[in-house]
């Protein structure tokens, strides 16, 4: 297989030795089928053992290896070096997040937000397991299925300028996951989730730049989720004005 050499300009940040990130360049010989992650692994294994980044499944489903590749948020296991060659590739930590080290970002805030949208089935009344599954038609499944494809890779947050300006914004992935449960025919938790989704740090922060949906590697379309929650919330608000006695 043909081997060529490509330059990777990788952001380094080692909190014990530098106050601001720097860039380190590596020349990497690569076969045609290498992705950016392969190049990083090559650096780690053969050149510089101190480079830190997260990765695991190398097949685009665990969501660990999100990075900025030439300024775009990407799963580094899913972008090929050959598509950038012969130009150098800039590899940076995901935008809009605090950086722990090198390419490793702090995503603990997301885990708090995820919990806040109550991403679990909320029932008025549980059915005993002995009575079997809740029936759900393929059409009912279809209503929420693509919002359930989120791998929590954080690319959408890296693409969202609103989150960049206000880190308190609940953000695309968490709202989409909350909405996924609202849409699930087995769930009765929409009203409970409204407290967080309809909060000023929730849907109304979103100005609909739309980039979250563009960069999403799983086509979850969080932008659509957020706008639809806006419509639903507004509809319910109007209904509550018109019919204050109506309980929802």
């Amino acid at each position: 297989m043909s081997e060529r050499t490509i330059t990777l300009d990788v952001t380094r940040y080692r909190p014990h030795q530098e106050a601001v990130p720097t860039v380190q360049s590596y020349a990497i010989p690569f076969p045609d089928d290498w992705v950016v992650l392969d190049a990083l692994n090559h650096i780690k294994d053969q050149v510089d053992g101190s480079l830190s980044y997260r990765w695991s499944c190398r097949m685009g489903v665990c969501g660990s290896c999100g990075m900025m590749v030439n300024g775009e948020p990407k799963l580094s296991c899913a972008v090929f070096l050959r598509d950038y060659f012969p130009r150098a590739i800039r590899v940076e930590p995901l935008s809009n997040f605090p950086v722990i080290r090198d390419l490793v970002i702090d995503m603990s805030g997301f885990l708090d937000k995820l919990k806040s949208v109550k991403p679990w089935i909320i029932r008025e009344q549980e059915k005993p397991l002995s009575e079997g599954e809740y029936l759900q038609s393929p059409r009912e499944l279809d209503a929420y299925q693509h919002f359930s494809q989120c791998i929590n890779c954080m690319l959408c947050y890296a693409a969202c300028p609103v989150f960049g300006l206000d880190s308190g914004f609940v953000g695309p992935a968490a709202i989409a996951l909350g909405y996924r449960y609202n849409l699930d025919s087995r769930d009765h938790g929409t009203a409970e989730r409204r407290e967080v989704l309809g909060d000023h740090e929730g849907i109304w922060q979103c100005t609909f730049v739309g980039e979250c949906s563009v960069v999403c590697p799983k086509h979850v379309d969080p932008a659509a989720a957020i706008q639809r929650v806006k419509v639903d919330t507004a509809k319910d608000w109007i209904l509550s004005l018109v019919m204050p006695w109506g309980q929802r």
Binding site: S56, C57, V61, G63, S64, M107, L111, I151
Partner: peptide, 10 residues
């Protein structure tokens, strides 16, 4: 790893 990175995911 964070729970959602676990290999069950694959």
């Amino acid at each position: 790893v964070y729970p959602m990175r676990s290999h069950t995911v694959s």
